[in-house]
């Protein structure tokens, strides 16, 4: 299990314990974190689980694939260097202290 911290639009923080193999998007949806839509359920067709990766204490995030990179060009909020799609960030052993910020909008 991995603790992931979401910084919400109002600045508050919500920590969600995500099971290994599950994505940051799924963890957010199943725990009703506001501001992550994840409409497509993780099949890389919607770009509504956009997050900004603020920090990571240990471990490595999966590298960005071509599809994710393409979809990030079309996100509703500003794309920044730390933009990722939550559906592509899988909770993995060794991943520690992941903090992601919810963008201003998803659509």
């Amino acid at each position: 299990m991995t603790d992931v911290t979401f910084i919400l639009r109002d600045g508050s923080r919500e920590v969600v314990d995500i099971a290994e193999g599950m994505s940051v998007m799924q963890g957010a949806i199943l725990n009703d974190v506001r501001g992550i839509d994840g409409e497509c359920g993780g099949c890389l067709s919607c770009a509504t689980c956009h997050v900004y990766v603020e920090s990571l204490e240990a471990g490595e995030l999966p590298p960005m694939g071509e599809d994710e990179n393409g979809l990030l060009d079309g996100v509703a909020a500003e794309r920044r260097p730390n933009s990722r799609l939550g559906c592509q960030l899988l909770a993995a052993p060794g991943l520690k202290g992941l903090v992601v910020r919810v963008p201003e909008r998803q659509v």
Binding site: E39, C40, S45, C46
Partner: peptide, 18 residues
């Protein structure tokens, strides 16, 4: 619906839920 995966052709459903 926690188990579904919507595609781009489901945009009507997404718009309706919004």
């Amino acid at each position: 619906r926690t188990r579904e995966h919507l595609g781009t052709s489901d945009k009507g459903i997404i718009a309706y839920r919004r």
